[in-house]
Amino acid sequence: MTSQGAKLSNYTGAPQQRSFNPYSDNGGTILAISSENFAIVAADTRQSEGYSIQTRYAKKCYQLTDEVVMAVVGFQADGTALAKRVKQRLEWYYHTHSEVPSLASIARMVQTMLYGKRFFPYYAHVILGGIDRDGTGAVYSFDPVGSYERESCRAAGAAQSLVQPFLDNMVYSKNQTADPSVAPLPKGERPVLPMETVLSLVIDAFTGATERHIEVGDGLQIWTIVKGEGAKLRELPLKRD
């Protein structure tokens, strides 16, 4: 019987391999919807690793300016690091130009920051929500290496596959035939959703995701960004099981 330190493999000259995985997945889901003069950014507050809950109250949304909120999911450490650096860049910008960049400009900056780490990416999915230069509510969504697009709704994270089809159905009215008694909207336009409707959609989406996904739950943070009124945070409980 060989002892622990005298294994045959230690003397055969075979190369020893060690590895370090710099990434982890901390679950959670984020979501943003925009309308004519407002945007909503929401996230659950559970943070987990595997089957363990690390905390029931982790923030995934960051207010960047008066009218822009950023939500991040994926690897928590990368998410917070990214948010911190974005905020720092915005502060530098304010000190040099005495003004706050627009949502479109922040979106482009986030792209360059994400792509800047193309070969050691932030393991984070980013969604920006807020009021754009033209005064309309806007949502920008990103992949971890910076591909981005302006949309009017997007879900990301653990329960993306549960929530996104629901948003397609309710926000984009996919697979819903228009009421023939109502005059159709001009091509390319869709009905303007009021705040109460969007809020209840967000709550329905998250209670549904909480019910069927183990990495979603505990609490819900909803940021509402209304044109001219700034951003407001409200918090709701979600199931904690």
Partner: peptide, 11 residues
Amino acid sequence: SEKLFGMAESL
């Protein structure tokens, strides 16, 4: 199935 769970749970 995952997408069906998300849809069915909310509808």
